[in-house]
Design a protein around this nucleic acid. Structure first.
Lengths: 109, 109
DNA sequence: GTTATTAATCGTACATTTGCGATGAACTAA
DNA sequence: TTAGTTCATCGCAAATGTACGATTAATAAC
């Protein structure tokens, strides 16, 4: 893929929010986050029982969420416990909250 | 790409939110939305002056936002005016707002 | 040591996204 | 009609994403 020659300038928040939105842009990842955030808080691979996909696929989605910083994993010998990353979660909440506020006029005339 | 045999069941909101998040998952599209939402409300292709990308590329991103329902276009003979879609914008705001609320306990112990 | 369990990673196949230039459609103005 | 403007769409190339099975690594239990 060719990239634009003139580098496009984005704000830090734009970059951060796009990365988070991208991570949220798949229903399986939303479901995982919802489970971690509400169901029983910190979790491990009983996700496999709740999500009918191959173990490797779920692991891949978890990796995407990790790389977006939205979750964190704590290895607990044979298992791994995944949790929401509270700081990043708050950051995401703030970014999206601010984004959707109609700063001036967001409605058409 | 192979799909899972057992169809995965998502809630309507999960599907909707994933689609919106996907559309938000690119810095150019965030910038476009930000411009439409704040700068001068309804807009046309002076986006081209603000975003140093090929016209076809910008058009493609606008199409993605249209398909996600986040914006709407009104053809105004040689030009097209794009605006935020207020209903969808509110819906998105509500979805993300609800999503990030720590329903029970979102922090690890 | 061996075995079992859990989860990450590798390799593969296919789909989708992202960028571009070129072309085409629609309308205005001359 | 002829140009000019604006924007969508097409076709291409390269990158990324998504799913899978197979393998590997780490640890616990024996």
């Amino acid at each position: 893929m060719q990239r634009t020659l003139s580098v496009i300038e984005y704000s830090v928040d734009e970059e951060a929010m796009a990365a988070i939105a991208k991570a949220l842009g798949h229903p399986v990842r939303l479901k995982i986050l919802k489970l971690l955030a509400t169901h029983e808080c910190c979790f491990t691979g009983e996700l496999r029982e709740l999500i009918p996909m191959a173990q490797s696929t779920i692991s891949q989605h978890l990796k995407a969420l990790l790389e977006a910083g939205l979750i964190q994993g704590e290895i607990n010998p044979p298992k791994v416990r995944y949790c929401i990353n509270p700081e990043r979660w708050l950051k995401a909440s703030a970014l999206f909250g601010k984004f959707f506020i109609p700063d001036k006029r967001s409605l058409c005339d």
